[in-house]
């Protein structure tokens, strides 16, 4: 029995191949596919952890749409955050990238320094630091008092400003967008600018007529990634508001509301429905971006 059939050998090889994938497959099914499928099911149930889920059909979704003022508050806060933080962050990232692209000495050092907040930004520690800076007697107010004698309010404890400190925190994490912009800027051939300068275009005209259009694929990519990220923002609001989206729900991000429903109020079924609504919202905006792309994104090939 020296010779084995080719099918047998092939099968054995397949088994060997797939066995190497097992750690990933376990993770994929147990931690990704499983919870996703479960959450779809739970979104149609009334489930409070204490008793088994009760099938209630569309009731959770109907309540979200018709009878949940906090849902609309969360939507309002989240959309304000997305619409402010994404364009501002992208504009800031692009501005820094353009400045760095001028052939600055020590580019690598500056690039690293500017990228650092992106590495740290999502962590709880930074959010804590942010809260300290913007609190009633925080670093910002001390600075304002020292410089201008201005006695600032508690920025994070005032409903009218709390959200904007979060927007600021998001903008501060412009590093990863900047790195991508920088790579995009490097892709633009130098002779475009030479041709434009012979055509008499000054710096500003070169930027708006050459740089920006040729950068649109990168702008598009960054915009989509950052929009999705902004919709999912959680940590900063959780830490700065102390977990309740306060003051007066002014930092009640959608994900924070979802978290509260699920793990504070133990409305697991309702929270699952909220999660799926967020998925649909993000999918909608991403699809919209891709549909609009053909009108403003320039691809070379």
């Amino acid at each position: 029995m020296r010779a084995r059939g080719p099918a047998g050998a092939g099968f054995r090889r397949q088994v060997a191949n797939y066995s190497f994938l097992i750690p990933w497959l376990i993770g994929f099914f147990a931690l990704t596919v499983g919870p996703i499928a479960t959450s779809i099911y739970l979104s149609f149930t009334d489930y409070g952890l204490m008793s088994p889920p009760q099938w209630i059909g569309m009731e959770n979704y109907v309540r979200i749409a018709s009878d949940d003022p906090r849902f609309w508050t969360a939507m309002n806060v989240t959309f304000t955050f997305v619409l402010l933080s994404v364009p501002l962050k992208l504009a800031f990232a692009l501005a820094v990238a353009v400045a760095l692209n001028k052939g600055l000495r020590g580019l690598a050092v500056f690039r690293a320094i500017f990228y650092l907040p992106s590495l740290l930004g999502g962590t709880v520690a930074i959010a804590f630091m942010w809260r300290q800076i913007f609190s009633r007697d925080g670093l910002l107010n001390r600075g304002l008092e020292y410089l201008f004698g201005y006695d600032g309010p508690g920025w994070v404890s005032s409903p009218s400003t709390a959200l904007y400190t979060l927007v600021l925190l998001a903008i501060w994490q412009f590093g990863s967008s900047m790195i991508i912009f920088l790579a995009g800027l490097r892709q633009i051939p130098q002779d475009m600018y030479e041709a434009a300068s012979i055509d008499g275009a000054g710096r500003a005209r070169q930027f708006f007529k050459i740089t920006l259009p040729l950068l649109t694929p990168v702008i598009f990519f960054n915009a989509v990634i950052q929009t999705i990220d902004a919709f999912k923002a959680f940590t900063s609001a959780f830490v700065i508001s102390g977990g309740d989206g306060g003051p007066i729900d002014s930092t009640l991000f959608y994900t924070l509301y979802l978290f509260q429903e699920a793990f504070v109020n133990l409305h697991i079924g309702y929270a699952s429905a909220l999660a799926w609504v967020l998925v649909v919202i993000i999918a909608f905006f991403t699809a919209l971006s891709f549909l609009s792309a053909r009108y403003w994104v320039h691809y070379d090939d």
Binding site: M192, A195, G200, A201, L214
Partner: peptide
């Protein structure tokens, strides 16, 4: 360059894509 009364044709053409 634009005020020198010259025009240039580049090796790569350098057309605005």
């Amino acid at each position: 360059p634009s005020e020198r009364g010259i025009a240039m044709v580049f090796q790569s053409y350098a057309l605005y894509p």
